[in-house]
Design a binder for these strands. Structure first.
Length: 270
DNA sequence: CCAAGGCCTGAATG
DNA sequence: ACATTCAGGCCTT
């Protein structure tokens, strides 16, 4: 392998497999060493090496982030440093907000397999379209009790109650509060939407996995009393993680999550 | 039958 | 009266 100048290499460094398989995107499929995926109104075709001149890809991969600097800032901690070393090319993607919003509502209390198995290779529906589909039609996709959530959420976007452009400009907490008004969105789902599509890198989705990770490696730093997360403990824990990890806490979460998932899968197989 | 990448509801605590 | 917590249910694989 030829060595690239380290600065250039780091800025555009991407490991596609690791990035796509890190629980942040759903509608992607790999065929003949190329990844095909849906992002809102776009179909993206990605080779291992991204096209940095392509604006869609540039935005999608968040190439404007100083990735090198982010990783450097997060590497003060041994656990995180190892996770970053193991997956140095894993990026946080900037997804189409509406797709991200609906996807994570659907993902709640569902399992990974069923989310990823969707053979959906249509463009993602527009809010208006989805807002006017009947709940029973939505349910035909196998969404169960979440069908109602999806419909209501689509309506909220269609009637302007939820405006992604505005949310992007708002402060983290304000944007999160707005999202949590939507039926079917709690703090965890809101944080996913904020981190993966609305540029809030301080959002830290605290799901069961992350909670377990924090208990396992950071019991000293974050004293965690409860087994499950309640409204209030979610906020307390979020504040602690941002205090500790800093402004890029969302990236920290992503590296830790990926690392732990990968280790546990290996254990399973081996 | 159980667990799984939450959320909502209603009732019980302080 | 108020804020929090708790238990149970929920669709699907």
């Amino acid at each position: 392998m030829k060595k690239l100048p380290s600065k250039l290499k780091d800025k555009f460094e991407v490991n596609l497999d690791d990035t796509i398989n890190s629980g942040q995107v759903f509608l992607w499929k790999k065929t003949n060493s190329k990844w095909y995926g849906i992002n809102g109104k776009s179909i993206l075709t990605l080779r291992e090496k991204p096209d940095t001149k392509n604006k869609k890809q540039y935005d999608f991969f968040r190439f404007e982030d100083d990735f090198q600097e982010i990783k450097r800032k997060l590497s003060k901690d041994e656990v995180l440093r190892k996770a970053i070393e193991r997956f140095p090319g894993m990026r946080i993607l900037r997804q189409d907000p509406f797709q991200c919003y609906i996807s994570f509502i659907v993902s709640s209390n569902s399992n990974k397999k069923r989310i990823k198995n969707g053979q959906v290779f249509f463009l993602f529906p527009e809010p208006e379209r989805l807002a006017n589909v009947s709940i029973s039609d939505i349910a035909k996709c196998g969404l169960g009790y979440r069908s109602k959530y999806v419909k209501k959420a689509a309506i909220a976007v269609n009637d302007g109650t939820i405006n992604f452009t505005k949310l992007k400009k708002q402060r983290y907490y304000d944007a999160r509060d707005s999202l949590c008004q939507v039926f079917g969105i709690g703090k965890k789902v809101a944080d996913c939407i904020l981190l993966f599509s609305l540029d809030k890198l301080e959002a830290v989705p605290l799901d069961r996995w992350v909670l377990r990770i924090l208990q396992k490696y950071y019991s000293r730093e974050f004293e965690i009393k409860t087994k499950s997360i309640t409204e209030k403990t979610y906020d307390e824990l979020h504040e602690k993680t941002v205090d500790y990890f800093g402004e890029y806490a969302g990236y920290a979460q992503q590296f830790l999550f990926k690392n732990e998932r990968e280790s546990s899968e290996k254990k399973w197989l081996g």
